[in-house]
Amino acid sequence: MTWVMTSKKRFYLHDDESLLDGLLRTGHDISYQCREGYCGSCRVKRISSSHSVDYPFEPLAMIDEDEILPCCCRVQGVIHINHEPVIK
């Protein structure tokens, strides 16, 4: 089970649910467009995580080392993120 913590709330992801879908399900206001790592509009800051964050395929969007793409990343354990939009 994966637990997600934001400044707004704490919740867990359902089986096979993306981080983006979990954020939307729990009422977080997250921008997104492509859902495949191309545009980068969903990027959020990763504050901490108990496991590494990986991607089933390398995203095309440029992200900083402390950013993740909730639309296509895979998370496990506990992750704490800043869900406020990252301005680039």
Rank of each mutant, 00 (worst) to 15 (best):
F11N: 11
I81W: 07
M62I: 03
A61G: 07
R35E: 14
R10M: 08
I79P: 01
C72I: 05
Y32M: 02
H51C: 13
P59D: 05
H80D: 12
D29M: 13
Y38V: 13
L24M: 14
F57N: 03
D64S: 08
D15G: 03
V53Y: 07
G22S: 05
T2G: 00
C72M: 05
A61P: 05
H83Y: 10
K8T: 13
L20W: 12
Y32L: 00
D64R: 11
K8R: 08
Q76Y: 04
R43L: 06
I47C: 04
K88G: 12
I68C: 00
I47V: 15
S31H: 06
T2Q: 04
F57I: 04
K88N: 14
P56K: 13
Y55S: 03
C42D: 09
L20Q: 04
P56C: 04
W3F: 06
G37E: 14
C73R: 04
Q76P: 04
D15T: 06
K9A: 14
S48L: 00
F11S: 12
E65I: 13
H51R: 09
M5Y: 10
D64L: 09
S31E: 12
V78D: 15
M5E: 15
C71N: 09
A61Q: 11
D66P: 01
D15Q: 11
L19A: 07
W3M: 09
R74A: 00
E67R: 05
V4Q: 01
G77H: 08
H80L: 13
H80W: 10
C71I: 08
G37A: 13
C34A: 08
V78R: 15
D15H: 10
V44Q: 06
G22Y: 04
C34F: 12
L60D: 15
S18I: 08
R10H: 04
P59V: 00
P70C: 02
R10D: 06
G22Q: 05
R10C: 00
C39V: 12
G22P: 03
Q76M: 03
Y12C: 09
N82V: 02
D21F: 02
L13T: 01
D54T: 14
T2S: 07
M5D: 07
D21Q: 10
G27N: 12
H14I: 00
I30K: 11
M62H: 12
D64G: 06
E58L: 06
C73A: 11
L20A: 00
C72K: 03
E67Y: 07
S49G: 13
K9V: 01
H28V: 02
S49M: 06
W3H: 01
L60T: 06
S7K: 14
H83D: 15
E65K: 08
R46V: 15
P56E: 14
S41Y: 13
T2W: 10
V4H: 01
E67N: 10
P85L: 13
L60M: 12
E84L: 15
H51I: 02
I87Y: 09
R10W: 10
I81D: 02
D16E: 13
C72P: 01
P59Q: 08
I79V: 15
V75P: 02
H80F: 14
S48C: 02
P70F: 01
V44I: 15
M5I: 05
S7I: 00
G27I: 00
D21M: 06
N82M: 01
D66G: 01
Y38T: 11
E67M: 10
D66A: 09
E36I: 13
P85D: 11
R25V: 00
C72Y: 01
Y12W: 05
H14F: 04
E65D: 12
L19G: 06
